[in-house]
């Protein structure tokens, strides 16, 4: 039986279809989850996709964090459920305090929409084990509030514990210490501003390629579900 990967749709979510497609492409069973339904429908992992949940009112992710489905995801994530938050999903994970820090307005205030090169920094998480440490990958970003911010102590802890999972090769938005993505201490929860679900096929991925550098996020979680003990954040 294939692993079931759930993808949450909030009002204002945009990238749920691409995330469901990524799950299907790696051989998982994609499962649509709805913000008002607290049931996780027996999924083995969850993706919080990008977009503008609840119109980004108040702060990005601030309202989504209190939705019925998030209450269930927060409890399950604390029990080890693999959760990947992409862009708005990363913002929701920070607002939920599943991940430290916050995403704030980009330096320069511009919305940035382009392919960026990332350097993978940690493979000891549920979502990054199929990469190599130091590997450079090409993934699109598209956000206005993607600048990662945290106090120095938190940043030092993230670095010391190997919880920075990817850095920008060229920092596009002023993110602290070039951070593009981080993990929780257990390694099951990962947040990433760039969009791996938009880099999974030759036809629609970054051009000129490589076009499919985002796929290993999704194959990694399948490996993790088969061999959970491999994760050593």
């Amino acid at each position: 039986m294939p692993a079931r990967i759930g993808v949450v749709t909030f009002p204002g979510t945009q990238d749920d279809t691409d995330a469901l497609r990524a799950a299907r492409l790696v051989g998982a069973e994609p499962v649509a989850l709805w913000h008002r339904d607290p049931s996780l429908h027996d999924v083995d992992a969850v993706v919080l996709p990008g977009g503008f949940s609840y119109g980004d009112y108040l702060r990005c992710g601030a309202i989504a964090r209190f939705s019925p489905v998030m209450e269930s995801i927060i409890s399950a994530a604390r029990e080890g459920l693999p959760v990947l938050g992409i862009c708005n999903g990363f913002q929701i994970l920070c607002e939920s305090h599943l991940l430290p820090g916050a995403l704030i307005r980009n330096a320069g205030t511009l919305f940035i929409n382009r392919d960026v090169r990332l350097r993978v920094e940690s493979t000891g998480t549920a979502w990054t084990s199929d990469y190599a440490v130091g590997q450079e990958i090409l993934i699109p970003i598209k956000n206005g509030e993607g600048k990662f911010a945290a106090d120095e102590k938190t940043l030092d802890e993230l670095e010391a514990e190997g919880r920075v999972i990817a850095r920008y090769v060229e920092n596009p938005n002023g993110s602290a210490r070039d951070i593009a993505g981080i993990a929780n201490a257990a390694g099951n929860v990962v947040g990433l501003m760039p969009h791996p679900e938009h880099a999974i096929e030759e036809l629609t991925g970054p051009y000129p390629g490589p076009a499919t550098d985002g796929l290993p996020f999704f194959t990694s979680v399948l490996q993790h579900l088969l061999n959970p003990e491999l994760v050593d954040a």
């Binding site: 601030a62 820090g101 916050a102 704030i104």
Partner: peptide
């Protein structure tokens, strides 16, 4: 809880 994010 809601109006402010005390992280930032």
């Amino acid at each position: 809880k809601l109006l402010a994010n005390t992280v930032i």
